[in-house]
Design a protein around this nucleic acid. Sequence first.
DNA 1: GAGATTTATTAACAATTGTTATCGGCTGAC
DNA 2: GTCAGCCGATAACAATTGTTAATAAATCTC
Lengths: 179, 179
Amino acid sequence: MDTSLFDEAILKEFTLSFKTIEVPARTILLREGEISKKAFFIESGCLRVWFNNNGKECTTQFFFEREMVSSIESFRTGAPGLFNIESIEPCVIKVITKAELDKIEQNSPIFRKRMEETILKRLFVYQKLFLSRIKDSPEKRYHDLLENNPEMILRIPQHYIASYLGITSVSLSRIRRRG
Amino acid sequence: MDTSLFDEAILKEFTLSFKTIEVPARTILLREGEISKKAFFIESGCLRVWFNNNGKECTTQFFFEREMVSSIESFRTGAPGLFNIESIEPCVIKVITKAELDKIEQNSPIFRKRMEETILKRLFVYQKLFLSRIKDSPEKRYHDLLENNPEMILRIPQHYIASYLGITSVSLSRIRRRG
DNA sequence: GAGATTTATTAACAATTGTTATCGGCTGAC
DNA sequence: GTCAGCCGATAACAATTGTTAATAAATCTC
């Protein structure tokens, strides 16, 4: 997370508020249907965001080192989140509670503004996810991923990639064979 | 649009700023790729939002009487919008410019707050659109629409419905025949 | 009202994906 | 080292959708 816009005092309180945890792979940090009370900053490892779709796991996003993950929508509405946040690899993660974030937000107009920007960014993320599903075939989406995020393909188990592309791992295997 | 939260002076300025226009069906109010400078309030008639996907029109939303339509994302970023806004029926529409909205927003904290809420709502709209595409087959999406918005099915030409469901009108015909 | 345009249905065929099942390879636990 | 479990590839079959084309019905234009 880029913290350059915070003033010193806020930044200090911000970093002090974090608690560091270590989790093995396949650990669920936030469960679908629960009200989100924490935000996560990934020091090392990677996470995926997914939801249960009639017994099938649907992965919507991956997050890596130095990325911040939370259900900002759930923060705002206080409603249960729609997604699970789960580790794919063993991770070192910094955790901050919503209560602490709220306190910082109250004392810092800059931080408040950043939160608004984050909401707008999330809107564009969903817009992009939505349009990608419509515009492109699973095959094209795979090739795009291969071109733009090859490290993702190498790092993340294939069945998660398939789940992210919205197809079965069988179908992804076929696409890979086709070239 | 619910205006109950505005104070009197703002509300007056707000309503005075509107200019009423009448347009026939198939009129494009905002063109994809243009920077949005206006917002529309539908008095009568209905609009659809769509984008060009390799020569095929993809409809993402429909709007009806008493609904406000604009590219709020484009407003915020100043970047070209991704969508066309087009009339399906002859419409009576109230138009307000972004410049006027900006002026009102500057003078009214309440209005500013409403805009933030609107952004959050848009986020949920995209979230819902995205999840619906993933979770449900076109057939299920059609039946859901039939159950929850039967008036939409009656009012809107079928090929637009098909475009909204993400299928061809041929496929929609087949689904309808299957029952 | 006649002709043109748009809209919806249906048919036939191709292509892609899902489903189910099998198999081999890899990894981790003990 | 061995066993169990997970992961990826492949095959065979079913189901759905897209594509193209033909046709009928509805609507619009003049």
